[in-house]
Structures are given as structure tokens and as C-alpha cells.
């Protein structure tokens, strides 16, 4: 369980002037679901591509399943499954044809492949649409097909690049159930996302911002670090209050959520509620210390990096 599936040191990648990935260190334990949380352009896809050996790092060391990447990328191919951000199977082939094709590409024996395809068609509820063209399927169905294909050759490591971006919440939940099943069976999963609720499901996660790794740890640890720093302010005229709060030196961010203003304060502050009360001096407001959410973690982490 303590074995590392992926170890990355000082990984950097330039595209011309742009630094897409900047000096990233990572250690991903085997058998876990590891999340990359970050906005678009934060370097998630670039890191995944480098880990698969599709892109050559500008600098840094990458070791995946004990193989040096990109030098030993060919040896890695059979051990990993990759679900690209964009659906990358053939629209004009049917579900079954796509699976058969990939099975043959991975060099699976005909009988094994047939059995495995049957099993996956059942597991991912694709059996009724086995003769449907992939191009004619819904987002959720395609995503199940892509996952089925990515796991066809029973890889020990799965890369999923924003797998749920074209999927509704219901299908997303089912999808995560399937990921936990895979994880239970021992597969290491690296999944990138920009959804907080998804990130929260990961065993561990890394928060990325403009190519840097800002913070990493389990979601619970990350949220615990923020304890006693999040305050919800209720009252009238919250827009104006937000502007005032943002001026305060100890406030990192403030965002309105329905009837409340959620305020994140700097680390190390002793009594956040008293501090805000004193600073705002408005009797019409009420203050509650809130339980930190992953979004707070994300905001705190990324603010820290931009302020640097």
C-alpha cells in the first residue's frame, strides 16, 4: 500500500515562452485515487501527457510504475490505460467494434478479448447498445465506453483526464462508483478535474495553478488546515459588505453564497469572528464560524500562489 506508483521530481515543461508545468514534485501511492484539481490551463493535461510519455519533459525526473519516462515509455504502454479529455474512440465504429479494435491493438488473444469485452459491456451497462455507433451516443454513454476501453487490457494504472466534463451529475455519481470498484481491485487511478465535489472523493489530491503544485494531501487534511479561518456573514446589502471586507488586511477572499458572505481569512488569525466584528462594526450582521470546504482550500491555495 505504501508503494509509489508515480514519482515525479522537478518536472517542468515549456511551450515556447509559456511555462505549462513549473517545477512539480509528486508522489502518488499505488492503489489510490489521486486527483489533480485545477482550473483550465493549470497544467493538468500536460502533466498527464508527460506521465504517459506523450510529451517530453523540458526538465525533471519521471518514474511511473518503476519505469523511467519518457525513455521506457514503450514498456509502460501495456500497463496503463488513458482516457483522453476529448472522446478519442472512433465515432464511425460501433461500441463493440471499438472495443474489439483496441483489444487487438493491445495484442489480446481473441478468446480473452471476447470474454473481457462481454464482461465490460455488462459492467458498464453498454450491452444494449453494443451495435450503436459511438458517434450516436450520449456524453455519459461515450464516457462509459471510454472507461471500458481504457480498462480493457486490465491496466494497473489509469489516467483519466477530466473524464466527467461532458457528463450530467447522475452519470457522474455512477462513474465514481465504478472508479471506486476499480480502485478496490487494486488499480491506481490518476484523475484530473475542476469539480470540487469530484476532488473531494479522491483519496489524495494535488491542487494545481498555472503549472505549479500549490498544495497536496488528503481532502480531509487539506480542509482541517483551514479550521477556524472561514466565517459566514449574514445580513443585508452583502454586496457592499463584500467590498468592505475585501479591503481588510487579514482577509484572503470573500464570495457570496446565497444569503451568506463566505470569508476566508489569513492563516494564524486567533479569533476571526471578533476580528471581523470589530472591523466591520455593523450591528445588523451575524457571524458564524463555518466548516471549511474544499473550495475554500482551493481558493486559499491558489491565492497563496498568485500572491507570491
Amino acid at each position: 500500500m505504501n508503494e509509489l506508483a508515480i514519482r515525479v521530481q522537478a518536472l517542468t515543461r515549456h511551450f515556447g515562452e509559456l511555462i505549462a508545468v513549473n517545477d512539480v514534485d509528486l508522489e502518488i501511492p499505488a492503489g489510490q485515487i489521486y486527483g489533480f484539481l485545477g482550473p483550465n490551463g493549470s497544467g493538468k493535461t500536460t502533466i498527464i501527457r508527460m506521465l504517459c510519455g506523450l510529451l517530453t519533459p523540458s526538465a525533471g525526473e519521471v518514474s511511473v510504475l518503476g519505469l523511467n519516462i519518457p525513455e521506457q515509455a514503450e514498456a509502460l504502454r501495456c500497463k496503463i490505460g488513458y482516457m483522453t479529455q476529448k472522446f478519442s474512440l472512433y465515432d464511425d465504429l460501433t461500441v463493440e467494434e471499438n472495443m474489439q479494435f483496441m483489444g487487438r491493438i493491445y495484442g489480446m488473444a481473441r478468446g480473452d478479448a471476447r470474454q473481457r469485452i462481454e464482461q465490460l459491456l455488462q459492467r458498464y451497462a453498454l450491452a444494449p447498445m453494443r451495435d450503436r455507433h459511438a458517434g450516436a451516443m450520449s456524453g455519459g454513454q461515450r464516457q462509459r465506453l471510454a472507461l471500458a476501453v481504457a480498462t480493457l487490457h486490465s491496466p494497473t494504472l489509469l489516467f483519466l483526464d477530466e473524464p466527467t466534463s461532458a457528463v450530467d451529475p447522475e452519470n457522474r455519481r455512477d462513474f465514481w462508483e465504478q472508479l471506486f470498484d476499480l480502485s478496490d481491485a487494486g488499480t491506481t487511478i490518476l484523475v484530473s478535474t475542476h469539480y470540487m465535489d469530484e476532488a473531494e472523493r479522491c483519496h489524495r489530491l494535488a491542487i494545481l495553478e498555472t503549472g505549479r503544485l500549490c498544495k497536496h494531501g488528503s481532502p480531509a487534511e487539506l480542509m482541517a488546515e483551514l479550521a477556524a479561518r472561514v466565517v459566514e456573514i449574514g445580513g443585508n446589502d452583502l454586496r457592499a459588505i463584500k467590498n468592505r471586507v475585501m479591503q481588510l488586511p487579514e482577509v484572503q477572499s470573500a464570495a457570496q453564497q446565497g444569503l451568506h458572505l463566505r470569508v476566508l481569512l489569513n492563516p494564524g488569525i486567533e479569533a476571526p469572528v471578533d476580528y471581523l466584528k470589530a472591523a466591520l462594526a455593523d450591528a445588523g450582521l451575524n457571524y458564524t464560524l463555518a466548516r471549511p470546504s474544499l473550495e475554500d482550500v482551493f481558493v486559499a491555495a491558489t491565492q497563496g500562489s498568485t500572491a507570491r
Binding site: G53, F87, L89, D91, I105, G107
Partner: peptide
């Protein structure tokens, strides 16, 4: 263009 290649080159082909 269709994105098939990105998947194909992660296979042992």
C-alpha cells in the same frame, strides 16, 4: 484532427 491519435499512441502499436 478527431483526437483518435492521442489514444492510439498511448497503446503499444
Amino acid at each position: 484532427e478527431r483526437g483518435n491519435l492521442e489514444l492510439l499512441i498511448t497503446t503499444p502499436v
